[in-house]
Design a protein around this nucleic acid. Sequence first.
DNA 1: ATCGCCTCCTGCGCGC
DNA 2: TGCGCGCAGGAGGCGA
Length: 271
Amino acid sequence: MPELPEVETTRRGIEPHIKGQTVAKVSIRCPKLRWPIPKSLYKNLPGKTILAVERRAKYLLVRFEHGTLMMHLGMTGSMRISPATRQWKKHDHFALTFTNKKQLRLHDPRKFGSVLWYRGTDEKQKLLAKLGPEPLTDNFDADYLYNKSKKRTATIKQHIMNNHVVVGVGNIYASESLFMSGIHPTRAAGKVSKARMSTLVDNIKIILQRSIEQGGTTLRDFLNENGEPGYFAQQLNVYDRAGEQCVDCNRIIKSVVLGQRSTFYCPGCQR
DNA sequence: ATCGCCTCCTGCGCGC
DNA sequence: TGCGCGCAGGAGGCGA
């Protein structure tokens, strides 16, 4: 399940191979992703050159002079660079073939991903307009999160997973960052002190940054013919560890469902 | 404005 | 070993 570090790793992995390349052909094998892949891409992209590959939240933004190709990996999406002659694999839904005979492919078994197109600024793109700050920028700090949480009754875990509050904190890292911060996931967001909120902000940044750095070692996998990009084995302290002992206090890790999402915590370490 | 539930889809794990 | 069932999960949409 791509979290923000995997999306950033994907961006860094594909950028050197597609930036400056000119699209020769668009292939839509299965348009039924989260939203239909727009057919307008067939006429919009051929002959056009990629100017930049950027990221906002978990969206990859491929910039052209006349618009932006916006892609999301959903839960199971992955991208890779391959020769244009390589045969299609099951669940390869979308591809751009470039004039240098290389291809960018989107592979997504569960089809929760998306491929969209928009012209104009990001601010006018509906899905991007209301997003909160990037977690690794200075805009996301203790003052911001504390003020944003005042009077909020939602649990702190759901709060930090809310894209209007801060983007890119997925289910795994939400549990992990709360464990690192000693904050119980069911605590109301508005009831977390500023000091503890500051710790939480620091830990979210540390966890995401560390994961992005680990991803750096897998960048060459975007060119491999076989298998998926390796991504990285996470060092997880609580996620998916219900029933096991806490690494800090030896009490038993518990799980609870919040907002339809499994949540893991240590009843000894988190208050 | 905010909250909570629903939905999309497929592979996997579990029980038998 | 094989089969069938139920569930996980990102995040927008919607109703309250």
